[in-house]
Design a binder for these strands. Sequence first.
DNA 1: AGTGAGGGTTGATCCAGATCAAGCTAGTTT
DNA 2: AAACTAGCTTGATCTGGATCAACCCTCACT
Lengths: 252, 252
Amino acid sequence: MNDRTVISFENIKIACSGCNLVTLCLPMGLDPDDVEQLNKIIKRSRPLHRGDHLFMESDRFNYLYVVKTGSVKTYAPNEDGGEQVLGFHLPGELIGLDAIEEGRHHCSAKVLETSAVCEIPFSQFVELSSTIPSLQHQMYRLLSREISHDEEMLALLGKKNAEERLADFLLSLSQRFKSRGFSPFDFYLSMSRHEIGNYLGLAVETISRLFTRFQDEGLLKVERKHIQLVNIEGLHVILRREQREENRRQIT
Amino acid sequence: MNDRTVISFENIKIACSGCNLVTLCLPMGLDPDDVEQLNKIIKRSRPLHRGDHLFMESDRFNYLYVVKTGSVKTYAPNEDGGEQVLGFHLPGELIGLDAIEEGRHHCSAKVLETSAVCEIPFSQFVELSSTIPSLQHQMYRLLSREISHDEEMLALLGKKNAEERLADFLLSLSQRFKSRGFSPFDFYLSMSRHEIGNYLGLAVETISRLFTRFQDEGLLKVERKHIQLVNIEGLHVILRREQREENRRQIT
DNA sequence: AGTGAGGGTTGATCCAGATCAAGCTAGTTT
DNA sequence: AAACTAGCTTGATCTGGATCAACCCTCACT
């Protein structure tokens, strides 16, 4: 992960059964035969480049996408050219789940760095899942996970202050890198300060100041996009300490 | 809807096929035979009273719930006794979807007024849905809708100011009452100012001041829990006008 | 009718984080 | 290597909404 420009193009086209994401992704917990059936309907894209869109808001919904390598951001554009960043998606994460109900995308998805994705034709998927109960159940679980995650973000935006938000964000990234076999201490951000701020409901300047402060406090080292978490426990303490203060002040 | 204390207890036990929520709820779009199968596994509760819990955070997940009459709030309690209100649920809305993945509830659900709910044993539901493709698809849609809704809330908490949030909240309630056959102009709030503020990421005092201001501006009449929307278009303008201003200022 | 408690309202003050304004840096283009 | 550009940082100032502090209803219970 130290040299993030090295991307293994050989395994982009690899089948689900041989994909190292099999424990995170849709095939999780499926029988090999079922994985193979799923594998057959999945299309694997050529590598996409920074700025490419998987889909745009209001596009017709035909595919679910899974990040295979790289990272993708989803965002809801609003009339005036502004946007709300809804999420940053790492390998193994499904994109487009909010489009199922209306058959039309509610957000746009833009590639943050050279990335590969798997495309799952949704109508074929629905057919297949009606014949494979464990696939259906796995899909329920993934949809449910997305709901849980969004609800955690609601609590973050509704209640946490700026430093808690950034600490939470960094710890979440760290955790997700870890479960994908990358270093949880040393990674590169594929998104800009601006995008982080937008995602966390904060101004760019606030993000910048917080990075500086966290570095001064010895919590991390930051050099542009390169982040090294020096004191992960310290970041956890930020979340917990503020909770104890709230305790005293009796805030809801 | 003007006298909200009148609740028809006769039809609480009514089957799905005769329930007036059939167009909003799980059975939407199902064949009558399939509705009947679904109906068989659903339990209908005795009326619940203000303050009763459907479930508490970290309870094992066994049932999905649908509000039949009345209203329910879901909230994520945090260690210190504070909470984040996640949603207010009206008849026909499913509760507990965030618990599917881990088999454990991530939030608590508390009844806001005398209410009736349907309980759907999830394991039986999963079995049934694997034999009824249209039920499975409907479940995907409802999960997807929940994700869309949460994402809209993320945009609200991330970008909108206090008056936009309250206007949005009132318009959403109005819309939901309307699609349930109640007046979209004249309704009672079943939640406190405190709960509204918590939900919208604002202080109680701010909610109170905004109600007063909206009333002074002739947008609505408010008398404790009783709300009459006098100028719905005016509320829409609040959302749009602020967007135009942002336009000028070039905010993201 | 009196008392108490849990909302709700209103006013005064405060502050975290936004906004405004420069300047800086690393890449890219010419 | 000069000129541009986009992204980032830093400082100064401003402000929307939080917080603090009374006070006021309404209703439930004696």
